[in-house]
Amino acid sequence: MLSFILIIIAGLFFSGIISRTKSIASGRKGPGIFQPLKDVVRLFKKGAIYSETTSFIFQIAPTIYFASIIMAMLIVPFGQSKGIISFNGDFVFFAYVLALGKFFNIISAMDTGSSFEGMGASREALYSMLAEPAFFILMGSFSLLTGHTSFQEIFAALHLGSTISYALATLATFVLVMVAMIENSRMPIDDPKTHLELTMIHEVMILDNSGFDLGLILTAGYLKFAVYGALIVNLFIGIVGYQYSIPLFFAIQFSMAVTIGLVESFMARFRMNHNAQFILVLSSVSFLIFFVVMLILGKFI
């Protein structure tokens, strides 16, 4: 329950912090931290325009996408306190629930019959497929390390005592941050602020959404960031008391948002046809984590 509330709070600010960082880095005055929220509220109040080509799929897809993110939020634990839903193998459920959201996102883009949106849909389907192994292998490594198979038990048992475990957590953070970037279609993979539809992934898929539906999609995007942020926080808090862990939660979410902002300010997007290789690198990093865990547990003998 705690994590659910914390993620919502973090999600409210996350996108604002990113855009604020970007505006400071580029020397602009820029919008305030609450601007994304205001945008969403404005969208919720608006009417909608639907394309003549679309069908009921296009109408239900944003709802299901949003619901899948909420469901994923319910599973994420917060240190000692369980998520609202917790069972053995819940991270499998977590990943597959997110996949349902993606499935509907992709087919709703196909529903418009637009060439641009089809392009985005195709890329989204391929990249998310390539990103998933990294997450599963990462969770497999932690499961091996701790001997548990649910989010909460894994994170609670993840003691960071030795130097090598810190190295492990750093690598894991890297993987999770990059998975979050891919899932949210942010910078090195995709540039949401590009002005050419041909080079977008996520933004081009939602070209035809408007009004309440677009609001749902944007909100879901903000929350998704916070969900992955919360997973990273969980790598570090372990059994620390709430008086430390809650500030730590916000500190880590904040620094993740700032990092994303900085990356987007100073890095160029990867070439689209090199993305696949890049994403596969993530899987090899998680393989590295797996082998480190095997080393720690002495399974090599």
């Binding site: 009417g47 325009i49 394309s51 709802t63 418009t112 019959g113 009004g211």
Partner: peptide, 24 residues
């Protein structure tokens, strides 16, 4: 959850203007 959110969406957009136009 999906049903609930869909219901909320239905209620929220009840009085909004819904138009159709060609795909962008």
């Amino acid at each position: 959850l999906i049903g609930g959110i869909f219901l909320i969406r239905k209620l929220a957009t009840r009085k909004r203007i819904i138009e159709t136009s060609p795909t962008w």
